[in-house]
């Protein structure tokens, strides 16, 4: 019973490329998986540690910028390195950025964490915009394509989709694994009662900072996928809109469960791409805002929460039916 949904998702991902055109494959499918992994890093923080962050797109951007800097020097900016080394550096820098943001953020709670991470995000945006030595200013980096591995061009639509799917699946499984380890249980414990966790012998700030570091690593993977999808990165990739999009997608999908990250990213990507067909482009924010509002009003735990509640209700109704039959039998005895 419990395996049905995961198996269905795996089957769907395997079959998906053969039933859709290349637009749906890359611009919807690939984007959902890359963007969803960035959202996953936020959902991990929120669902299991109770902390919010608006800097996850920024951390992803650091991963993306670093990859571009080391694999696709543009306009004389950047150092060409072998791609495996570039990726290790990029993920290391994203993790480091996560840890540093965590160091600042764990001193605050709730709305103040949001404010301080937003401040970090905006500071990074202006840095990328004004710095030409490292970030190449307004232009950013172009032609940042995925590597060709053993003759397989990972930038071609089908390999790129599967690459994204594998990395997303690894991140998702990684999150599900970590939250069941002693470290993950301690994170959930401090989400519920931080004082008690300290009284049990844990270093609470350290746990929180490490959680930010892990979220940074995940966001870095999403950031690299995002870079390869667009083949470019520029200050627009880490501006206010994409920073908020991560939170929007998280809330749409449901900030309480890691699956919500990908559900939210999918819905967001679809609306983002197709809203233009039936409303004017400038009305996109109105539409996504209304959807956001409806979700927050009617299902605060997002679309996954909605599904979960409906299925529990079904399960309960089923149990009631069974209970009723048993009672009828009992009467016969």
């Amino acid at each position: 019973m419990r395996l049905i949904i995961p198996l269905a998702v795996v089957a769907l991902v395997l079959v998906y490329p053969f039933v859709v055109n290349s637009f749906w494959l890359v611009q919807i499918g690939g984007r959902t998986l890359g963007f969803g992994t960035i959202v996953l890093s936020l959902v991990f923080l929120t669902a299991y540690t109770g902390m919010l962050s608006l800097a996850q797109m920024t951390v992803a951007g650091i991963g993306g910028y670093a990859t571009a800097y080391f694999t696709a020097p543009t306009g004389g900016v950047g150092v060409l390195l072998p791609w495996p080394l570039a990726l290790v550096l990029a993920l290391g820098l994203a993790t480091l950025a996560g840890l540093l943001i965590g160091l600042v953020a764990v001193r605050t709670r709730g709305i103040y964490t949001l404010m301080i991470t937003l401040a970090v995000a905006m500071a990074f945006y202006y840095l990328t915009l004004q710095n030409y030595d490292i970030f190449n200013g307004f232009t950013g980096f172009n032609n940042a394509d995925p590597p060709v591995v053993l003759g397989l061009d990972l930038g071609a639509p089908l390999p790129f989709f599967y690459l994204s799917a594998i990395l997303a699946a690894l991140c998702y499984a990684g999150v599900r694994h970590v939250v069941r380890t002693p470290f993950g249980l301690a994170l959930q414990a401090l989400r519920d009662e931080p004082d008690r966790v300290r009284a049990l012998g844990y270093n609470v700030p350290l746990l929180r900072v490490l959680a930010f570091g892990l979220a940074g690593f995940i966001a870095g993977i999403g950031g690299i996928l995002n870079l390869w999808l667009n083949a470019s990165i520029s200050p627009g990739s880490v501006a206010l809109n994409p920073v908020i999009d991560v939170l929007m997608a998280g809330v749409l999908g449901g900030i309480g469960h890691p699956a919500g990250a990908y559900v939210g990213a999918f819905v967001f990507t679809v609306v983002d791409n197709f809203a233009i067909d039936f409303i004017a482009r400038e009305r996109f924010n109105t539409l996504i805002g209304l959807i956001f509002l409806a979700i927050v009003l009617f299902s605060p735990d997002g679309l996954t929460g909605l599904v979960r509640r409906v299925s529990t209700r079904w399960a309960r109704a089923g149990r009631r039916d069974k209970g009723a039959t048993r009672k009828t039998k009992d009467i016969g005895k």
Binding site: H177, V178, R180, T181, P182, F183, G184, L185, A186, G201, Y202, N203, L206, L207, L210
Partner: peptide
């Protein structure tokens, strides 16, 4: 306290 390799 920070083990992440094996599940609880």
């Amino acid at each position: 306290r920070l083990t992440i390799w094996k599940r609880a």
